[in-house]
Design a protein around this nucleic acid. Structure first.
Length: 210
DNA sequence: TATTGGATCGCC
DNA sequence: GCGATCCAATAG
């Protein structure tokens, strides 16, 4: 089986489908001779104007306008005075939606990522959304970068992820907390520390797994 | 122009 | 469990 780079058509689908399918794929960031990245193990879906937790729920603003753009663009924003959140835009152009990257199993450039994070445990490099951006050197400068290009992209190496589970999204208030739109690989050590949430197997997306 | 709170993290 | 930290969004 050959490795392949994910194309725009991958992201031009329903956000839940993209969120589930992107688990197990490898995110690569190239900068000159530096190659950083790893396998995605936890993501969340933010879907359109009807999703109260989606930044675009109240319409288009300077911050969220990238979400209305082409599927496959990076949506990066700054929050809590400290952290950059890395998202990939999904669905057709004009429909504001994205997948937030929350957990990554380090594969490439582990030493450099540990330097970027000032940590010395691999399990503490990228087990949280702010940590992923810091490890990879992502800031709002990367907002709008196209992941079908050659600087930041995703690779399908045909690895089958283990069981996919879902839960409510983290850090979301009552509005939108009912949606089970956080997806992660059950038991993986690089999933972020989460509050005690109801988790269940995402049965629809685990065909063939019993 | 002022105020408020956040898709978090790290340390107590 | 709580404070840091600063920007975006909203209200006045």
């Amino acid at each position: 089986m050959k490795k392949s780079k994910l194309k725009r058509s991958f992201f031009n689908r329903s956000t839940v489908e993209v969120a589930v399918d992107i688990l197990g794929k490898v995110l690569i960031c190239r900068d000159g001779s530096t190659k950083l990245g790893g396998r995605l193990v936890e993501v969340e879906a933010y879907i359109g104007r009807d999703d109260p937790a989606c930044h675009a729920s109240k319409g288009r603003t300077p911050r969220n306008e990238i979400m209305f753009g082409k599927p496959g663009l990076l949506y990066v924003y700054f929050t809590y005075g400290n952290h950059y959140m890395l998202n990939i835009v999904t669905e057709r152009e004009g429909f504001p939606a994205a997948v937030l990257l929350r957990g990554l199993e380090p594969v490439y450039g582990i030493n450099q990522m540990m330097k970027n994070r000032e940590v010395n445990k691999v399990t503490n490099i990228a087990n949280g959304p702010g940590k992923i951006s810091q490890a990879l050197g992502i800031t709002t400068r990367q907002k709008g970068v196209d992941v079908t290009g050659d600087r930041i992209y995703l690779v399908d190496d045909k690895t089958k992820p283990d069981e996919i589970w879902c839960s409510p999204r983290i850090g979301i208030g009552a509005d939108g907390a009912d949606r089970m739109w956080r997806f992660f690989i059950k038991g993986n050590s690089y999933v972020s520390r989460a509050p005690k949430h109801i988790c269940e197997m995402a049965r629809v997306f685990n065909k063939g797994i019993r």
